[in-house]
């Protein structure tokens, strides 16, 4: 009974992805001929070739990788020291500063999109990768919260001993604190990368030139085709391509993803 329900739920959950994969490997002429197969008789890469020939899919792939990586690096560079300070340093206004940052978790992602767009345009970042990357780094409420929790698990004595050795705050962070929370950092890297890989509305607005778009944005171009044979096959091929890296990362780093989402690192 338990298994029956779970199997059903799992099948429903995976089916759209499965159907996407099937379609991606079925030549588009067959896709449009209403001959249904749960798996193509002769799997073909034709859709991938069509997509790569007609659109700068390779550039999209590269942009997605670059943007996701830089956003992740930026977020960690900011959130890790902040989390450490909130966990182990005493200073005036600590609580206020902490909650100022953490409260941003309740902001809808696009609430400030109009002023942000104006600002980005004014500094000349429209249609640039920086325009996508820099504002995206700002969503660090969860990251700071998570890092503070992780650093808190480290015993205070660890740092007091270091202080005896005349280690300043920077050495404490780099040489003692960070090496002890590497699993947490790994978790955050993974979820940040996956999150940034999937940035959609903001990137759709900011990235104008086709060769600067990311996969998530480029996909949208396929839904805008008018007056023509539908391109479901190539579309699913690109969709699969856009899903593949996060699926792979998830498969390899599953432990860290689960840990990040459930706050249970190191148990």
């Amino acid at each position: 009974m338990v298994h029956a329900v779970l199997v059903l739920a799992a099948v429903l959950s995976v089916f759209p992805l499965f159907w996407m994969t099937t379609t991606a490997f079925t030549p588009n002429e067959l896709v449009l001929r209403k001959t249904f197969r749960f798996w193509p008789d002769e799997p073909s890469l034709a859709n991938f070739r069509t997509a790569f020939a007609g659109y700068p899919v390779a550039a999209w792939l590269w942009n997605s990788i670059l943007i996701a990586t830089l956003v992740t690096v930026g977020k960690l560079a900011i959130a890790v020291p902040a989390g450490f300070a909130f966990a182990h340093l005493r200073f005036r206004g600590r609580e206020a500063a902490f909650w100022t940052i953490v409260a941003t978790m309740t902001f809808p992602t696009i609430i400030g999109i109009v002023p942000l767009y104006v600002g980005i345009s004014m500094v000349g970042w429209f249609d640039t990768r920086a325009g996508v990357i820099v504002p995206s780094i700002a969503y660090i409420g969860f990251y700071v919260f998570f890092m503070r929790q992780s650093f808190r698990t480290l015993p205070r004595e660890m740092f007091e001993a270091a202080r005896m050795d005349a280690a300043g705050p920077f050495r404490q962070l780099l040489q003692i604190a960070i090496p002890n929370v590497l699993p947490s950092i790994a978790s955050l890297s993974v979820i940040s990368f996956m999150g940034a890989w999937n940035i959609y509305l903001w990137a759709l607005l900011v990235l104008d030139s086709p060769e600067k778009r990311t996969l998530a944005v480029g996909l949208k171009a396929f839904t805008s085709i008018d007056d023509h044979q539908p391109m479901w096959g190539p579309m699913m091929a690109v969709a699969l391509l856009s899903a593949l890296p996060v699926l792979l990362i998830f498969a390899f780093a599953q432990r860290f993803v689960m840990a990040a989402f459930t706050g249970r690192v190191g148990e």
Partner: peptide
Amino acid sequence: FAFALAPWIFTGPALLFAVVFLYLPVVFS
């Protein structure tokens, strides 16, 4: 000096990003 300054060096960027890219747009709205 390092201990007095460190908290703000560590938390400053996070605060700056949150204020510039999340709070200010709301105020401008």
